[in-house]
Amino acid sequence: GPNNVSMGELDRIAQNIIKSHLETCQYTTEELQQLAWQTHSYEEVKMFQGKPRDVLWQQCAIQITHAIQYVVEFAKRISGFMELCQNDQILLLKSGCLEVVLVRMCRAFNPLNNTVLFEGKYGGMQMFKALGCDDLVSAVFDFAKSLCALQLTEEEIALFSAAVLISTDRPWLMEPRKVQKLQEKIYFALQHIMQKNHMDEDALAKLISRIPTLSALCTLHTEELQAFQQLHPETVNVLFPPLYKELFN
């Protein structure tokens, strides 16, 4: 293997991450397949559109927070993550958890009709109109569609999620070398699996090229939250989940 990592070790890393991913997904692949064509009716979409802006924001903040709790659990089960110093564990999760949520979201996205699972059924972008941030919503939908186009397997989604989370690009890491070693192994494992699964030799490069978009989406989310908070400070302070505020405020 590359850099003195044996194939046995890469395989162990891959198996651990895939298992961690499958154990911490909100929905199994089977559940998502069963739901895939259950879409919100016209009346249900109208109902979302008719909600006050702050109510829908709160609802989305709760959903995101819920998804993040699963991502924290995913991180904890990755071999080596809990061996990082606590500063770096917190830093990686704080800066990467929403990116992982967005990667995981492609599992619950139907690219054939551009709908996403929200509140039990699938619905399109128009469902989120009342949020008042069409740019962010359409960018998130575009991202999900572009990731779906790569037709990743569950194993690849797992390894890519881990690679996004365990990243040396985050500022203020205390032990960047330790994070780098772990990240390199994850990438080797991802590369190995993708070479096996895809005819397209550039599949990994295409996947990696989505990372800047991920980070741009998170920046946009922070900006939209700040703009929302200026208009609805009470909603954020009183009604938003404490974990959401801790991570994004």
Binding site: Q69, E73, K76, R77, M82, Q89, I90, L93, K94, L243
Partner: peptide, 14 residues
């Protein structure tokens, strides 16, 4: 500073 995240990391994996 990151009280809840800290707490989630401390909780034993269920």
């Amino acid at each position: 500073k990151h009280k809840i995240l800290h707490q989630l990391l401390q909780n034993s994996t269920s």
